[in-house]
């Protein structure tokens, strides 16, 4: 097994008296999809906010490529190549696909936009993810379907050599066909060597794409398993706390 790209060791986070993460350990491997599952309030959002640098952890160690790193703000996270695709997508409807993908990091020559260069890179990134549903990279995001928007948001995250992409419920609001498209995209993301951490409530999706499953229960990581070594029923048990995982963690 490869060495993990990101390793969280015993991270803790509390808000006042409420302890949300009570010593969580997690590994994300390059080229693999790790699913993070758990019921509402288990601490999934807090865990990824720490990784994104938005809400730093109180205690614990974060290793990136085996080296301890500090994640105190979003800039440090993005410098390491950690990108987050949030559930509510964070795209500007009034801008086109290229403009959205480059938002905040436009290519300029002499202080003015190099639209040709940006258009080329956006197009190449989408193509490298085998995106076939987008007809023109210059259409406004307001004209895109939910699946296409998710596609653009994911493509945006890998535009600048991302090494870890964190997806927050990428299929939550999608129909069947669009879910298939997005899951295929997530797989291709991993095939490119990116470490993918995918939060999902949908165990069907999880079992379809994930290599590993990590289950968070009330702020503790109760199971980290290879997908092939477990069943949907067991995972539901871990999520709800009715079953206890006794095997070794990956």
């Amino acid at each position: 097994m490869d060495s993990p790209l990101i390793e969280l060791i015993d991270v803790k986070k509390s808000f006042g008296p409420v302890s949300v993460l009570k010593g969580v350990s997690l590994k994300v491997f390059p080229g693999k999809i790790t699913a993070l599952v758990g019921d509402n309030g288990a601490g999934k959002s807090t865990l990824i906010k720490g990784l994104a640098g938005v809400q730093p952890y109180d205690e614990g160690e974060v290793k990136f490529d085996g080296q301890p790193v500090a994640l105190h703000n979003p800039r440090e996270a993005s410098r390491l190549g950690i990108e987050v695709v949030y559930q509510d997508l964070a795209l500007c409807d009034n801008l086109d696909i290229v403009q959205n993908m480059f938002l905040g990091r436009e290519e300029t020559t002499l202080g003015t936009f190099d639209e040709g260069q940006m258009e080329r890179e956006a197009s190449e990134t989408l193509r490298s993810l085998s995106v076939r549903t987008v007809k023109s990279v210059r259409q406004k995001v307001s004209s895109l379907s939910g699946g296409q928007r998710q596609t653009v948001a994911i493509a945006r995250s890998v535009l600048k050599s991302a090494r870890v992409v964190i997806l927050d419920e990428p299929t939550a609001a999608l129909g069947v066909a669009q879910t298939e498209q997005v899951l295929a995209l997530v797989k291709r993301l991993a095939e490119k060597g990116v470490g993918v951490l995918m939060i999902s409530h949908n165990l069907v999706d999880v079992f379809q794409v994930a290599d590993y499953i990590s289950v968070l229960y009330l702020g503790q990581m109760v199971a980290s398993i290879e997908t092939s070594a477990t069943t949907s029923d067991d995972v539901v048990g871990y999520i709800t706390g009715s079953k206890t995982y006794t095997g070794a963690s990956i």
Binding site: S123, K135, V137, Q139, S143, L144, S145, G147, Q181
Partner: peptide, 22 residues
Amino acid sequence: TTTTPQTPAPAPTPASDLIGSG
């Protein structure tokens, strides 16, 4: 034309190198 939802991937793109830009 591309906003029609729920359609699986449409016919394969022509052999052009890049996605269109209008």
